[in-house]
């Protein structure tokens, strides 16, 4: 993976819609920080987008099936391989992995080695609410965001990367520590919802858009 040069022609970030919920709030969050964003499920748009966002709520297996039925997996993998900045959000983080306990036997995108496991029943599940994100190493994604800042979570499963080097941030929930952000090359993803995390969430989206040179005002 190399490059990261935005395609000519379009200056609009592309939010991949595979039929899992309302993506308007994600789009509006980018627009709020002066980043043009389109929502859709067009493989040709994916193939030319300067940056991609994969959001999502719902179940792992159903989401993979939707991506497959809409013919989005191959263009997505090709575009990521071409080095375009990619951001996964919530289920969009989990889909990057090889498999999930939520739907055993369904392969994920496999871009990150490791799997997705249910949060242990010792904690209240789903994990809902504002929780603190401890960033493990420097990344421009968290530029201007103080370590330990709170973001809004809603999930029942958490990712377990095989390589510690992929871990970008961790979060503690009632004594259960899980990976709340990952990053490898041009692929980044977060378990929380930046579009529901007020000013710092918007900041994170803006930081991501900046990677693709899509920030239009200072």
């Amino acid at each position: 993976m190399s490059g990261g040069i935005p395609a000519r022609g379009t200056r609009s970030l592309y939010i991949i819609d595979y039929g899992a919920g309302n993506l308007r709030s994600v789009q509006k969050a980018f627009e709020h920080v002066a980043v043009e964003a389109r929502v859709g499920s067009d493989p040709r748009e994916i193939a030319t987008a300067p940056a991609l966002v994969l959001p999502g709520v719902g179940a792992f297996g159903a989401a993979m099936k939707q991506l497959e039925d809409k013919g989005l997996i191959e263009p997505l993998l090709l575009r990521i391989e071409a080095g375009v900045p990619f951001l996964g959000v919530c289920l969009g983080l989990q889909l990057l992995f090889e498999s999930s306990e939520e739907d055993p036997g369904v392969p994920g995108l496999g871009l990150v080695r490791g799997d997705v496991r249910a949060l242990p029943p010792t904690a209240k599940v789903p994990h809902i609410g504002w929780n603190q994100v401890e960033v493990c190493r420097w990344s421009d994604l968290f530029d201007g965001i103080p370590d330990g800042s709170a973001f809004y979570f809603v999930h029942s499963y958490a990712v377990v990367p095989r390589s510690p080097g992929d871990v970008l941030a961790m979060t503690d929930y009632d004594g259960v520590t899980f990976v709340s952000a990952i990053e490898t090359d041009n692929v980044a993803a977060v378990q929380f919802h930046p579009e529901k995390s007020s000013a710092l969430g918007l900041r994170l989206y803006r930081n991501f858009a900046r990677r693709a040179g899509l920030v239009t005002r200072p």
């Binding site: 309302n22 809004y152 969430g201 918007l202």
Partner: peptide
């Protein structure tokens, strides 16, 4: 609900 989804960045 529609307006809030567009203008509000908290749940």
């Amino acid at each position: 609900a529609r307006r809030c989804a567009e203008e509000l960045f908290i749940p």
